[in-house]
Design a protein around this nucleic acid. Structure first.
Length: 158
DNA sequence: GCCAACGTTGGC
DNA sequence: GCCAACGTTGGC
């Protein structure tokens, strides 16, 4: 039997890379993640086909903006080896890479951005790290129930 | 732009 | 291994 599909939420600052950018690119290496826990999720737990909610952070309307899926297996983030990149890591080598990423493939925009204020008000999300104060993790797992609750919210009036 | 929360670094 | 200093995240 195939393993169950997992669900994830991945944050991005829309000024730098938005759901519109992902729609144009169709597929994008999710580079620049420099947090060990987020790396471990991508490197060790994501599988092709997993569901991804694309979350806009640090912007006028923070919230879930669209859907995507994990497009392939994880591999070393090339930007860690590039001295000119903002994401360069001098301690990383191709033999011993430190940072990993997955490619993410666009699926669709949500009908509207489901805002953080709404997410906080959803009883189903009470136990999700997403709405915990001070949460800074840019890649985090969503329980199937969380995924469904957010999708259901899409069709409601804000 | 402010600032609380949190992760990382490095001296000891 | 502790923990203060520092840098970053991200809502507001």
């Amino acid at each position: 039997m195939a393993p169950a599909r997992r669900y994830w939420l991945m944050k991005t600052e829309p000024d730098a890379f938005s759901i519109d950018d992902l729609a144009r690119a169709r597929r994008e290496p999710w580079n620049g993640v420099r947090n060990y826990q987020a790396r471990n999720y991508m490197r060790d737990h994501m599988r092709p086909g997993d569901g991804v909610m694309v979350y806009h952070s640090n912007c006028r309307l923070p919230g879930v903006a669209g859907l995507a899926r994990v497009a392939g297996d994880s591999y070393p983030d090339p930007s860690q080896f590039d001295p000119r990149s903002d994401y360069h890591d001098p301690k990383a080598t191709p033999e011993e890479p430190r940072w990993f990423l997955v490619d993410v493939e666009y699926e669709r925009h949500l009908a509207r951005v489901v805002g953080l204020d709404e997410l906080k008000a959803l009883p189903a999300l009470e136990d999700s790290p997403l709405v915990r104060r001070g949460n800074r993790l840019s890649v985090l797992p969503l329980a199937a129930a969380h995924w469904r609750a957010i999708l259901a919210q899409e069709k409601k009036q804000p």
